[in-house]
Amino acid sequence: MLVAQFRRSRQGMLGLTIFVVFAMVALLAPVLFDESQLDVTKATGGVFETPSGHYWLGTDDAGRNVLAMVVWGARISLLVGLCATVLAMVIGTSVGIASGHYRGLVAGVLNRITDWFLVIPFLPLAIVLATVLGKSLLNIIIVIGVTSWPATARLIRAQTLSVEGRPYLERAKALGAGDLHQMTRHVLPNVMPLVLANTTLAVSISILSETTLSFLGLGDPTAVSWGTVLDDAFSSGAISAGAWWYLAAPGICVVLVVLGFNLIGRTLEDILDPRGAHE
């Protein structure tokens, strides 16, 4: 039913198409461009060449093919975005269900922690964490995951509270089901649709966060992502050189992918909660 409704949504299908195209590009990157094209010492083009038949998106300050960098960047940007989202969803869903299921001290402590992470400004917190942990792909995933779960926890907690009041949970309790059994077998399946819709929206936020952190120089220096390409472009003077292609290409990719995930997420939200304000 969900699939049929989703297929009828134009914005949802547009979002899905964008995602599939970029996922294909990311998977096929090694086939499309040899990895050596990312190596500054093996660059073949001239400095800041304008887009041409040979270099569709021009070259950078070292003569590298910008198209190859953007294609390879899709791999890291999507990988970090997806992994960070999975981490955020696991933390957010667990904390949300636990704080809705338990009463007293556990709920109190979990709610305080959620509140704290909600209030603290995201970017300064992420910068501090990333600086202390050091620059690596795993660390940037951890930083984004650890800073972006609280909104999900809030949402899941509210849903859990409404599920907890339903008769079948009373019945499970009466039959002697333990806390873990109640949470995993009864509450989790009921909040899963909401988690799914929230996940797609969270991916877009994770990708934007990765781009921002990498642009500020906190990304893995050995991996090429759209954020590090933008960082390279900015620090190599692409702006004063007027090399618009070097800046435009990675940015447009970010906007398209983030927009794609936003469209999918909004469509899922509309289907799951038709009273929403997107109309």
Partner: peptide, 15 residues
Amino acid sequence: YSMPEFWFGMILLIV
């Protein structure tokens, strides 16, 4: 909403 604000700023700068 889907745009990194610093990228928008850089595009304005270059134009």
